[in-house]
């Protein structure tokens, strides 16, 4: 069984982002980028399934500009066998990315598709669900446990009320939550080996995808700052302050 894993290049999660003064976006030049943390978890899960003999081949896929090649190299170092780069120079949104990913999924004849539950840049949390809808396949989002056996997956999902378990028929789409696994550290020999693994570059046109109408970005602003707080010395001082404001 082939597994597909999507990876997205995002600003590193430790970076304090800055909004551009003209409101056109956030500063990305010269800022550290990494693989979206949820996608590392997706990658790790696919690799573990391969180690258990349930997956025979892992294909990493990304949709984005030239710099996304380094993201795919990281996925290859993780253990992907090969990669597909859907090269798009302009900014694309979730539905268009989902159309491209669904096309790759079909073309490659994959049976299971792991994606992160959300990307930490746009925080949209849409792509996996959209891919599943476009392919009319089952989805298990926010997965914290995945068992695959006999053409089915049993997935535990993190939902507001607790943990929900679903049984889904393969092929299926699974999006990964933080607690699914602990991604491994990359080893230098694997990083070296990854340089030799193949990356196929395709365009949206090659996949027969026409970009869906986009949400127009009007502006990006810095959120209002909270006013400076006060440091209190004792519990009594804190209690007095909170009582004074009618909070307790």
């Amino acid at each position: 069984m082939k597994a597909l894993v999507s990876v997205k290049r995002v600003i590193d999660y430790n970076v304090r982002i800055q909004v551009k003064p003209d409101g056109s976006g956030v500063v990305t030049d010269g800022v550290k980028h990494s693989v979206n943390p949820f996608d590392e978890i997706a990658m790790e899960e696919a690799v573990r399934l391969k180690e258990k003999g349930k997956v025979t081949e892992i294909i990493a896929v990304t949709v984005g500009g030239a710099k996304c090649e380094e993201t795919l190299r990281t996925a290859l170092a993780f253990g992907a066998d090969r990669a597909v780069h859907v090269k798009v120079d302009e900014e694309i949104q979730s539905l268009t990315a989902a159309q491209a990913l669904a096309a790759v999924f079909k073309k490659e004849g994959t049976e299971i598709f792991f994606l992160g539950k959300q990307a930490i840049d746009d925080d949209a949390a849409q792509t996996g669900q959209m891919v599943a809808a476009l392919l009319d396949l089952p989805q298990a989002t926010f997965a914290s446990k995945v068992d695959i056996d006999g053409g089915k997956a049993t997935v535990t999902r993190e939902v507001d009320a607790g943990l929900e378990t679903l049984e889904i028929d393969l092929p299926a789409i699974i999006t990964t939550d933080l607690r699914l696994n602990e991604p491994r550290y990359l080893k230098l020999p694997d990083i070296m080996k990854a340089k030799k693994k193949p990356i196929e570059v395709v365009s949206l046109a090659d996949l027969g995808v026409t970009a869906a109408a986009a949400l127009k970005r009007v502006k990006v602003a810095t959120p209002p700052k909270r006013s400076k707080g006060v440091m209190v010395k004792t519990v009594d001082e804190l209690v007095t302050a909170l009582k004074g404001k009618g909070l307790i």
Partner: peptide, 29 residues
């Protein structure tokens, strides 16, 4: 259609604010 996730303010029938980058920026779409 593209979905608008996590609307935090409504400016009109098609104009909304939503948080991006863990709420460190507000996007108007």
């Amino acid at each position: 259609v593209q979905q608008v996730s996590d609307i935090m303010a409504v400016h009109g029938a098609t104009s909304f604010d939503r948080p991006i980058y863990a709420g460190n920026a507000i996007l108007t779409v």
